[in-house]
Amino acid sequence: MSDTVSIVIVSHSRDIARGTADMVRQMVGDEVKVAFCGGNADGGLGTDVPRILDAIGTVWSPKGVAVLVDLGGAETNSEMAVEMLPEERRGRVVVCNAPIVEGAVMAATEAAGGSPLDKVQAAAEELAAG
């Protein structure tokens, strides 16, 4: 199934990002494309805009991309990355206000059923609202 919303995970830690992506693949399956990025070029903590853009590009889906982030810079850099996307893609990428691990699993489960981007975002954010 290729017409599902994709997931991008952005953490300050590459290990957390990779581990979260592993959880999504193992728990939800491989019908939803998942990309992750985290850490800086020196192997330390950090996030950066070009890597986030790359991650979005590798899993791009016409149905859209839901981005799950951890703290501070991960969110602002993800928002900056969205702003730098070509205009026709910009409206189809959302940064979810949700805990990164739980939100990623919720979003991917919703996406696996073929749900549109707004429903995927709502599923991830349902936790924060509760």
């Binding site: 939800v28 489960t109 919703e110």
Partner: peptide, 14 residues
């Protein structure tokens, strides 16, 4: 728990 719940929800959504 989480994994059974994911399977149940994915099936329900079909």
């Amino acid at each position: 728990h989480a994994r059974p719940a994911v399977k149940l929800v994915k099936l329900a959504k079909r």
